[in-house]
Each structure stands twice: as C-alpha cells, then as structure tokens.
Write a protein that binds this DNA or RNA. Structure first.
Length: 650
RNA sequence: GCCGAUGUAGCUCAGUUGGUCAGAGCAGCUGAUUUGUAAUCAGCAGGCCGGGGGUUCGAAUCCCUUCAUCGGCUCCA
C-alpha cells in the first residue's frame, strides 16, 4: 500500500502501483473526466503512470499550467503524427509545449516545403487522429536501443539528442502510429484534444544555432473545448487592435519611409509631442535626483569605439565608418553614448568627494540591426536612449543602485505600469573567464544588486550566466494591460569602460582609484517605450501626456465663436484644446474624435452659449452632463494636477 | 542574415482559371446641409497594381530578380 497525501493534507491509502487516473476516479467521476495530469512529489507525470511510493500529489485540471503543459505536449505529438502521415519520411527535431500552445520543429525533406496554406490540411488530419482516442503509452528504453531505433528511421536529430542523454533516463512515448523520444508527461489519450488551431510556420535553426540547418517550425494551440479556442483567438484579435504600428498610424504618431531607410522612425507632430512630454517628465525626475544633463554628438572617431571595445565586437556587423577628405580619418555613427560620457568624465580630474557624478543624455544612437529583426518602434536602427551614466566609488555602488531603482519604480508607477518584475543577471557560477574585472569587485557588485533588490522588495528572479561580459545587471519587465510582458528599463554595472578609458579619481588616501560606472535607462529607448505605452493603453494615454486633451464640438457654425471662447479659456489654463469646426453633425464629430482617443469632448450649442456651460463627454464613458465652463476648467486642471502631483510624490 | 507569407489609391480591402480589371468604402477636395451625444447628401479628384527584367498577341494575375512589410529563428553593446 502507498500513502497518498492530497493538497489539503488529507492522506489516503491505495494499492501499490495505483495510477493518478485511478485516484481521480476514486474521488469522483467528474474529476476523472476533467483531470489531465498529476504532480507526484512535485514532478509532473502521466495520469496512467503507476505510483509505487508514498507521495504528495496534486491532480491538475485544465486551469493549471501543469495540465496545459501535458495537454499541449501531447498535442505536439499528435501534430507530429499527422505530419508523418501526410509527409512520410519527415524527420523530427523537438516539439515542446510553450506559454500558449506548442510547436514542433520538423524537416520534411529538402524538396518539400510546408507553408501556411498546408496548415488546414494538417489540422484536419490531427482532428481525425485525435478522434481515434489513441492512448499515449510510455516505455523506458536503453540508450543503445534508442539509438538503433531512431538510427533505423534515419532521424539524425533524434539520435543527436539521444547521444546527449544519460543512459537509463531515456523514455519513449507512443500513440497511434507515432513514437517519439520524450520525457513526457502526456495525456492518457488523445480524446480531450477537441479544438485545434495551427497558427503559423516559421524557420528555426536546429538547436538554435544559425550555423546549422533550418527546420520548419509549426506553431499550434489546442483546447479541450471549442469555446476556449474561440476565446483565445479573440484575445489575439484584441492584441492586434492594440498593435502600436496600427495605432501609431491611426493617431499619426510616427511613420517610416523607405526613402529614409528601414528601421529609421519619423516622429510625426503628435508623436513628437508625446515623446517630448515623456522626456521632460524624466528630465525633471532626474534633476531632482542629482543628474546633470550633457549633450554629445551623433558621431565620434572610430578610435573612440576601438578604445571602448564596441568596434571590435560589433564593428563589422554595423553601420560602416564614415570617411572624410582627410586621409585615414574615420568616424562612426555612435552606437552607444557611454564612450562620449567617459570622455566628459576625463575632461577634468575628480576627487572622491565629488562622486558620484551622474551624467544624463537623451542620446540618439544607431545600430545596424539585422533586417529580419526590425519591428515597428520596438526594434529600430536609430533610436534615442534615456541614457545616464553614474560614476561612483565602490562603496557608493549599492546606494546608487537603489536610487536608480527608485527612479524606475517612480516612472513605472506614474505611467501606470503597476505590475512589473525584475531579473538579476549574474556571472556564470563556474566559468569566470569570459568576464572582465576582478573577482572581488564582481562579488561586491553582485552582492550590492541582490541586496538592493531585497531591500526594495522587488519581485525578481536571478539568472546565472546572463550578465554582460563587463558587469552584472538588473532588468525590468512590465506586464501590460492585457498581460503581455515587455522588457523596459535596465541598470548595468560596468567595470570594463572605466578600465579601457583609464578613468580615475583621487581618493582620501591621495591615491588614484578606478571609479565604477553604472549604465541605466528607465525607458530603455524612447521608441520602444512609446511603443509599449501605446500597446499598454491602447492609445488612451494618461491625460497629462496625451497630445490633445479636449476638443470642442460646436453643434453648428453659429456656435463657432462660443467654441473659440471655450477653447481660448482652456488653452489659457494650459489645457490642450482644439475645435472641430467641420460642417458635420455632432454624431460624426463625436465618433471621429472618440476614435482619435480624445479624453474630453465638449459639445456646445444654443443652451451652452446662453448659460456659459459646456456639455461634457468623457472618452469611452459617454455623456457626463452639462457643466459651467469655469467648473470644467477647474475639473480638468485638477485631474491633470492630480496625476502630476501623484507623479511628483511617488 | 535565415525560413515562410504578403505587397492593388493616404487608410482598409475587392479584383474567379492572364483578355473593358484598374474597383469599393473611409480619408481628401468642391458644393449643398447648420446639424444636440459614435458615420448628412451629392459631385470631383486619387493608383504605371512595390521596383526591375522576362514569358505571351495580351500580365495586377504566370516566371525570375530586387526592395519593403508581416510571422518566426538567430542577434540585441
């Protein structure tokens, strides 16, 4: 007998070799119908796998990630079976479950191309196969047998995977006519897979290595119910509606021109206004935190970047040097602001007393990103970093780090990114050879970051081996209004540049010392941040930030003079107000301005003119009734002030 | 950079198998309308069908090539 402990800590005895499915059945038939996988002592397993030891278990239904994992993993196998049936001789790479669904990397042979147009056919086959209720069966196999099995099939990807595995841990899963190397877990059978949608095909390098063969990756998602699939597709549709490229076009925020060049955004007046407001906001915050603005040119001598090391690492894959009539003279478009800032630091000697020095610049940089990687405003070739560099003493590192965290926290709050997490990137635990700087400093810096994060109570995960070669870092990921994650701000410690630029300060001991540099960018880049802000808000920006706050809609031409009076008064209060003077009906004016996401619409006609009032509509909320003009001015001023006050006091 | 898809007026899209196929709606312009809480009406103007080659009597439609965009992969100082 085995003792099975349930999540509520109750314990029941079962026969040796009982399966998760049997346990579910022993509780209720309805549970047995819904359960999809089981955790046994924290390890996710098949429901059909016998349990021979005392265990704490959890049974997973669809709502648990553990259930979805098994469900989608099984779906990947089902897709593979369908592909093998339709494209005999296909070789298989890997086919895991992912956050939303699953994929399988396949090699259908050199002269076979699978495209989007083939997906419905594969889907259909999958549905057919799923309906057969094939059981997923597990089999443990020796390495030798596994190699021979997949060797016979000619599946070199699988044999490569097997070669990397320890003998004795290799398992196969089979269902229907398909057998795959797989750790599991899987569903008991294919029958719960009711709704199937294959999403897209893409090329993916085998084992993520661009020097190796590119396989065909097919993404898909499945659900136990058709309605869940429909909800999922609706969510995708909603996300599309928030796409910053679409909204950027609609609201005339930015554009691109082939004549200017790929990945080089053109900020339109409304977008420029928005961005400038964000920049001014951050400039004020930074001023309060002791940053000093600096300004540096867009190009610098090639030697500058040779010194910084950037040329060696990125030079050949980047915008190439600009030559001049002067023989041998070459400039580079600046890919980073830091070398310039280092030179500013070096422009005079520094005492330990004046550190930290904090230099801030909205510095525009140019990087030759791979063409396939460009994407709207989130990945471009020319962009402006909200950059700053802090030069400090080792004993100031932690405090400075905390101050930067405060700024980033402040900014995220002000812009309504309430939900964010962080990642601490540290050195590889074993291999320190690829990092510059001495062990002692690294340890101090890593410790400082971990303590800072701890003190600030940040949600974080620590990743070893993710640090840059020049120092550890802390990245900020926000979750937007519809739950997607975006990486924004970053704080990085740098031992490399102070070394390369031979930066120093005179310490209390009258000796020369090396300062530490902190790079930090709360927004990351203005382009990327504005893109994320657009997707987060769906274009409905906070009122203090939005380009146009109020539009006055006169009901007819007769009230244009009153509309002008209203608009003048509001503009005098610094409320950004326009008048819609088109000869259109009110309904049309409302519709158009709602679509432009104007926060307040003021309808004015005979009644309003007579009584010195305005009829107020709030964006998305409809008619809010009539108000005295002065009262409205006060109301909206207060709303803006409150937002800004909130921002100031965070 | 790699794999796949797409590319028709400012925007969103129609254009069956190559033969009045260069269209629609919105936006724009002109005029009428003077409007009361999410689309007033009419007229006009707008495109060498991404660019360049080719096949054909004939190409938006087929082929090649190039550029750009989209979905991924790789990369991201």
């Amino acid at each position: 007998m085995v003792n099975i402990t349930f999540p509520d800590q109750s314990v029941r005895k079962y026969e040796d070799g009982i399966t998760g499915m049997d346990i579910a059945k022993s509780i209720s038939n309805s549970l047995a119908r819904e359960v999809l996988s089981i955790s046994v002592n924290g390890e996710i397993r098949d429901l059909t796998r016998p349990i021979y030891e005392d265990a704490e278990i959890r049974l997973h239904k669809w709502d648990d990630d553990e259930a979805k994992h098994a469900f989608w993993h099984s779906s990947a196998h089902l897709m593979a079976e369908a592909i093998e049936a339709l494209y005999p001789g296909t070789k298989f790479g890997i086919g895991p479950s992912i956050e939303n669904g699953f994929y399988y990397d396949v090699d259908p042979g050199d002269d076979v191309v699978i495209t989007d147009a083939d997906l419905p056919k594969i889907e259909k086959k999958m549905k057919e196969l799923a309906a057969r209720k094939s059981r997923y069966t597990r089999e443990e196999i020796s390495k030798k047998n596994a190699l021979s099995l997949f060797g016979k099939k000619g599946d070199e990807y699988k044999t490569e995977l097997i070669n990397d595995l320890e003998d004795g841990t290799i398992s196969l899963y089979s269902h229907g006519n398909f057998t795959d190397l797989c750790r599991g877990p899987h569903l008991p059978d294919t029958s719960p897979i009711k709704a199937i949608k294959l999403l897209n095909v893409a090329g993916a390098y085998w084992r993520g290595d661009e020097k190796r063969k590119q396989l065909t990756r097919i993404y898909g998602i499945t659900f136990p119910k058709q309605s869940l699939l429909e909800e999922f597709l609706e969510r995708i549709e909603k996300a599309k509606q928030r796409d910053h490229r679409k909204i950027g076009k609609e609201l005339e925020l930015f554009t691109f021109s082939q004549k200017v060049g790929q990945g080089l955004p053109l900020w339109l007046p409304k977008g420029a206004q928005l961005r400038e407001r964000l920049e001014n906001f951050l400039k004020n915050v930074q001023k309060q935190h002791g940053y000093e603005p600096v300004i540096t040119p867009h190009i610098g001598l090639k030697e500058l970047y040779v010194t910084s090391g950037h040329y060696e690492k990125y030079g050949k894959d980047s915008f190439q040097p600009i030559s001049t009539p002067q023989e041998g003279e070459e400039f580079l478009l600046k890919p980073m602001n830091c070398p310039h800032h280092c030179e500013i630091y070096k422009s005079k000697p520094h005492s330990y007393r004046e550190l930290p020095v904090r230099m801030a610049e909205f510095g525009t940089v140019y990087r030759y990103e791979q063409s396939g990687e460009l994407h709207g405003l989130t990945r471009v070739r020319g962009f402006t970093q909200d950059d700053a560099h802090i030069f400090c003493r080792p004993d100031q590192l932690k405090e400075e780090f905390i101050k930067v965290i405060d700024i980033i926290h402040h900014i995220f709050n002000a812009l309504d990114f309430k939900d964010y997490t962080t990642q601490v990137s540290l050195r590889d635990k074993e291999d320190h050879s690829k990092y510059i700087g001495n062990d002692e400093n690294w340890e101090k810096a890593e410790q400082a970051i971990l303590e800072a994060v701890e003190e600030k109570g940040l949600k974080t995960n620590v990743e070893y081996g993710e640090a840059a070669f020049y120092g550890p870092k802390l990245d900020f990921m926000v979750r937007d209004a519809i739950g997607r994650k975006w990486q924004l701000g970053t704080i990085q410690v740098d031992y490399n540049l102070p070394e390369r630029f031979d930066l120093e300060y005179i310490g209390a001991d009258n000796q020369k010392h090396r300062p530490i540099m902190i790079h930090r960018a709360p927004f990351g880049s203005m382009e990327r941040f504005v893109a994320v802000l657009i997707e987060h808000t769906g274009g409905k920006f906070p009122i203090w930030l939005t380009p146009d706050q109020v539009v006055v809609l006169p009901v007819s031409e007769k009230y244009h003079d009153y509309a002008e009076k209203v608009s003048n008064l509001l503009n005098n209060y610094d409320i950004r107000t326009l008048i819609d003077e088109r000869s259109e009906k009110v309904g049309k004016k409302i519709r158009d301005n709602e679509l432009k996401r104007i926060p307040y619409l003021l309808i004015v006609g005979e009644k309003e003119k007579e009584s010195g009032t305005v009829s107020v509509r709030r964006q998305g909320k409809g008619d809010k009734g009539v108000m005295k003009l002065d009262d409205f001015a006060t109301l909206i001023s207060q709303e803006v002030d409150n937002q800004l006050k909130f921002i100031d006091t965070i």
